[in-house]
Computed example of a mutant assay.
Amino acid sequence: MQSGISASQELQTAFNNLVSNESQRGLLVTIEKESLVPSTVLSPSSSSFESDLSLLTPHLQPKTALYIILRRYESTTPSPFIAVTYVPDAAPVRQKMLFASTRLTLVRELGIERFRETIFANKEEDLSAEGFKKHDKHTALEAPLTEEEVSLGEVKRKEAEEGRGLGERKSHVSSGVSMPITDEATGALKNLGGGEGDNGNLVQLKINISTETMELASVTSTPIASLSTTISSTEPRYSFYRFTHSHNGETTSPILFIYTCPSGSKIKERMLYAASSRSAVQVADTEAGIKVEKKIEASSPEDISEASVLDDLHPKVEVKKAFERPKRPGRK
């Protein structure tokens, strides 16, 4: 699923001008107010694509992501343009996720047929003449959008999908983004992992978007029936819950990791929480010694009930009857 960001009318107009005007080499695009907008038009200083790559130098910043549309092939060809997603390693995590998840929206809304290929770059030298030579040597030109399966370094695009219920248990990301955690949050997790019931059995963590740090949201003693009303219904949460219950005559207290992401959450929140969900589980393990028994994902806390949790922990095993040979007619 994409980020929800779309191309502005201003970008559509700028791109149409690029298509019809061969005196333009390319177009730089950024994200502002949840919209794709043009920032700079690149006019060629020569007839050589390799020579004109020097036009990019003033615009490539070490901590700023950017989309770069370049005319690389003759205008008589069906797909004269390439789309570059430039995301330097030092860019903020939130920015990485937004640009990675929106890159396909860019080419789709401007016209897939216009682009020969889409490229990821995270270093300025990747966009030099030598960098393109290396790219061409190691990667045969493919049909547009085949790079949909390619990851951006350690970040893979996949945000929390709206409407996802407990019936779907896939992880939002196949690799996570490491995120620091406060001492207060770590302490609460250690108490939960140590089984100190007086301190509560539900620990909720939240992400401080401005500092990109996991913080403690709350610690409460919550019965299973009250989870849906105790976990925040307006903001995403990472909840660690010690569920003490009896099953088949045995009492156990597994710890559940519940990741909730309400559909009304802001795009940046959805992206950052999705990218860091695995990090939350890992830090609970390494910093607090918590071994999560079951991971649960839900769009809304209302999707969480005692019945659904028990079904996750103790799925019913279907017993198939043995095949019975049909009786011959006339026999009893």
Rank of each mutant, 00 (worst) to 15 (best):
T220V: 07
H314S: 08
K295A: 07
P80Y: 11
K206V: 00
A307S: 10
E324R: 10
R237D: 03
A280C: 06
S39R: 14
P329T: 11
S151E: 05
G111C: 04
S263Q: 11
D183N: 12
E324N: 03
N21H: 09
K123H: 14
I119Q: 05
K137D: 10
Q9Y: 03
S35K: 13
V292Q: 07
Y86N: 08
H59S: 14
K33L: 05
V283T: 15
F243P: 02
S276I: 00
S218G: 03
T213S: 02
Q204E: 15
K206E: 13
P223S: 13
E32P: 00
D89N: 09
G176K: 01
K156P: 01
G194A: 14
D126P: 03
L42W: 06
F243A: 12
R169K: 12
A275D: 02
T13Q: 15
E32N: 13
G131N: 09
E184K: 10
S128P: 00
R25E: 15
T57E: 15
S6P: 00
K158V: 07
E130S: 13
V219R: 14
S277F: 11
Y238K: 03
C261N: 14
D136N: 13
F115N: 13
C261M: 15
A83L: 09
M97K: 11
T30C: 11
T139C: 07
V107P: 00
I255K: 05
L70I: 04
E125S: 15
S101T: 15
T64G: 01
I258M: 09
L166F: 06
T40C: 07
E293M: 00
H138S: 06
V93C: 01
G163M: 11
E184V: 12
